[in-house]
Amino acid sequence: MKIISTLILILAISPVYAEIYKCEENGIISYQQFPCKEGGTEFIPPKDISPEQQKAAIEKLDREIAIQAEQKQQQQEADDKERLIRAQEEKADAAAQNARANTAQVLQNARQTEQIRNQNQRPYFPIAPVNPPDNFPIAPTDPIIPEPLPANN
């Protein structure tokens, strides 16, 4: 089975040589495998290019690939820089927003503190110590013991 599939693959890959005709009808050029109805010529495709032409084509292709790779690298670097700048701008915006929020909180705290001070502020009237006059009776320091009540018989 492997031999048959290999042979079919080789036959399918092998180049097909067929005659090609170049026909021109009403100013339209077409290529076909059958001879033209009116006029036309057999078209013979050009042969392979020379080894020098192949080398030149390879060098040209390599240069173009290198240029594209360099452009891609430059574009990637530019995109990275742009992403970094955007991230820094977003960070700065967030910091500014936090600063505004902190400022608003500080102002709110200051207003509340002022309100509490105003509510708790009582007029202060210092009271001078009063010394009793010399003839002022002073209460005895001994406890007063009540006398017993008379008993009723």
Score class of each variant (00 low, 15 high):
43 F>S: 04
147 E>K: 13
108 Q>P: 02
77 E>C: 12
15 P>T: 01
137 P>K: 05
115 Q>K: 04
40 G>E: 01
6 T>I: 15
5 S>G: 03
9 L>G: 05
15 P>D: 04
22 K>M: 09
104 A>M: 06
57 A>Y: 06
107 L>Y: 11
132 P>S: 00
82 E>R: 12
2 K>G: 14
23 C>S: 03
53 Q>I: 02
48 D>N: 07
126 P>V: 08
92 A>S: 08
19 E>R: 06
105 Q>K: 11
7 L>Q: 10
68 Q>R: 09
51 P>F: 03
140 P>F: 04
128 A>H: 15
27 G>Y: 05
81 K>I: 05
82 E>C: 02
13 I>H: 08
100 R>V: 08
60 K>A: 11
60 K>L: 11
145 I>F: 15
122 R>M: 09
6 T>K: 15
42 E>V: 05
121 Q>E: 10
61 L>F: 15
67 I>L: 14
118 N>A: 10
78 A>E: 14
95 A>E: 13
75 Q>H: 11
80 D>I: 08
124 Y>C: 01
70 E>Q: 12
123 P>C: 06
129 P>C: 03
110 A>D: 03
26 N>H: 14
12 A>F: 11
40 G>M: 06
8 I>E: 12
10 I>E: 15
49 I>V: 12
142 D>Q: 10
151 A>K: 07
132 P>H: 01
27 G>M: 08
84 L>S: 12
69 A>W: 10
50 S>I: 07
125 F>C: 03
39 G>L: 06
111 R>F: 05
44 I>C: 01
38 E>C: 00
21 Y>R: 01
58 I>D: 15
94 A>D: 11
62 D>I: 06
95 A>M: 10
139 A>M: 04
25 E>W: 02
56 A>I: 10
150 P>K: 07
109 N>W: 05
74 Q>P: 00
19 E>F: 08
110 A>C: 00
82 E>F: 08
147 E>R: 11
50 S>P: 13
45 P>M: 03
46 P>N: 13
